[in-house]
């Protein structure tokens, strides 16, 4: 109310998102009738397991409701958005229907507080739960933007402790006991709040009541939430605005009277907080996939990521020679192949090697630029010469093969003849011996007969003579 902060960082708590578990997109709803200083108060406590995919801030009557300063009952807004559980959301001007504070609905920023310091609750794109005070700069962050954000009044619980006194000082410096802000904090009434528990589950609180007659004050609400393991929470609109809708049907006792005083009627309010079936983030998977049970199933071979917004062409990443597109690698000039890992074949250049070289004498060109200056013209051949040389080369190859074959055949012939001759001579020798062996006395040495021959002249029989 009293301070406006445009830049810098303000006090807030960021809570990491709970781990994503497929199929765990449910909610837990509890109904209570509890006694607060001997007053029986009825209400509901709702936990949403995966806030990023199951929680939305809705504009009154659908998208464009804040710009149109529309007001609608929670039932009307919740039915159109198919909410399982819905409550009234942020504050608004009763006379004009203007949405107050920051409103980001499904990534669309539809209302701004201009840095006005009231308690905020939001979810960033990565699922981080943010509670507390935000500068305008932080609200407008584009690196990890808010996908859902709304403003309340009074930060009830900060990091597991009641934070009402501190937030009274921050959200308004006139904290005199009798001031309207102090009365707002301490009066019993119908109340609603939003926060999260230690598991990172989103918590919605609603209590029936009527200002100054039934219900609870902010202290009692904060103590109740603390007992439910809530670690950060802010107060949302209450009084006649407090409404709880279950599966599209009013499930609370609103405190506003109808035109007929006999009955109570739900108020037409501004924004609505809604817990629905798991939705994809973003709901259309960036147009590159289909949403199945809150998870994007990407189409094509190259879209990746939880929101199908990342292109992935494999571990080689187009070999640093191309750009990954939804149809695969688009290679830089001079490169080709599914991974852009091959250079253009000779005679081709340009993106995807689609352009033929236009150099004189059929010279190759630069595969990237098509420039012909990379090789000397002398080295390039006229087409007729090239054909001639090719013919010569072919003839040479044929002759060489023929000569080589003949030479090998000749060698084989010689080798066969030699082996055959060796075999025949060995067979002849075996035939004479008949398997035995014989002595061959030396006949002479240097023209003289041996001593044995000298001693046994003439017809002496030598049984061993061959």
């Amino acid at each position: 109310d009293c301070t406006r902060v445009r830049a810098g960082s303000r006090e807030h708590e960021s809570w990491p998102p709970p781990p994503t578990t497929p199929g765990a997109g449910g909610l837990a709803l509890r109904t209570f009738v509890s006694h607060f200083r001997d007053r029986a108060v009825a209400g509901h406590l709702t936990r949403a397991v995966e806030p990023l995919r199951t929680f939305s801030v809705l504009e009154p009557g659908g998208p464009g409701g804040c710009a149109a300063r529309r007001r609608a009952t929670v039932e009307e807004t919740a039915r159109a958005a198919d909410c399982r559980v819905a409550q009234n959301g942020g504050f608004f001007r009763m006379n004009s229907g203007e949405c107050l504070g920051n409103v980001v609905s499904d990534e669309r920023r539809v209302s701004s507080s201009g840095g006005l310091q009231n308690a905020q609750f939001g979810i960033r794109r990565d699922g981080t739960l943010v509670t507390g005070y935000l500068s305008e700069e932080e609200v407008l962050d584009t690196e990890n933007p808010f996908v859902q954000l709304l403003s309340g009044v009074v930060w009830l619980i900060r990091n597991g402790s009641i934070y009402i006194n501190e937030s009274q000082a921050t959200e308004c410096d006139e904290t005199q006991e009798t001031g309207s802000f102090s009365k707002f904090v301490n009066v019993i009434s119908a109340r609603t709040a939003i926060g999260h528990d230690r598991k990172g589950q989103l918590v919605l609180f609603h209590a029936d009541g009527q200002t100054e007659q039934r219900g609870i004050n902010l202290w009692e609400m904060a103590e109740f939430l603390l007992k439910q393991d809530v670690v950060n929470a802010i107060n949302l609109d209450g009084g006649g605005s407090a409404t709880f809708v279950l599966n599209g049907t009013l499930a609370s006792y609103p405190s506003d009277h109808c035109q007929d005083n006999m009955w109570r009627c739900p108020r037409q309010v501004s924004t609505v907080v809604c817990v629905h079936e798991p939705r994809c983030q973003p709901p259309d998977c960036h147009g590159h996939g289909t949403c199945v049970d809150g998870h994007c199933h990407c189409t094509g071979h190259f879209w990746r990521g939880p929101g199908c917004d990342e292109l992935d062409c494999g571990p080689s990443n187009c070999s640093q020679h191309g750009l990954c597109t939804e149809t695969g690698c688009r290679c830089d000039a001079g490169w080709t192949g599914s991974n852009c890992s091959e250079e253009c074949p000779l005679g081709w250049h340009g993106p995807g090697c689609q352009r033929p070289c236009k150099c004189e004498h059929h010279c190759p060109c630069d595969p990237k630029t098509g420039n012909c200056s990379i090789s000397g013209v002398k080295q390039c051949l006229q087409p007729s010469e090239a054909t001639l040389r090719a013919g010569e080369l072919s003839f040479f190859t044929r002759t060489a093969w023929l000569a080589l074959t003949l030479a090998l055949a000749f060698l084989l012939l010689i080798s066969t003849a030699a082996n055959l001759s060796l075999l025949l001579s060995r067979a002849e020798r075996n035939r004479h011996l008949h398997g035995g062996y014989a002595y061959h006395p030396l006949q002479e040495m240097n023209g003289e007969p041996l001593a044995t021959e000298k001693e046994q002249p003439g017809g002496a029989h030598n049984p061993f003579k061959d």
């Binding site: 109310d1 406006r4 309207s180 009084g239 006649g240 506003d256 009277h257 109808c258 035109q259």
Partner: peptide
Amino acid sequence: LDSGASRDDDLLLPYPRARARLPR
């Protein structure tokens, strides 16, 4: 079953209606 519109009679306002919420 329609009992008519709400009379918006249970007002719970954090700040006085007349007070302009101007930054200082």
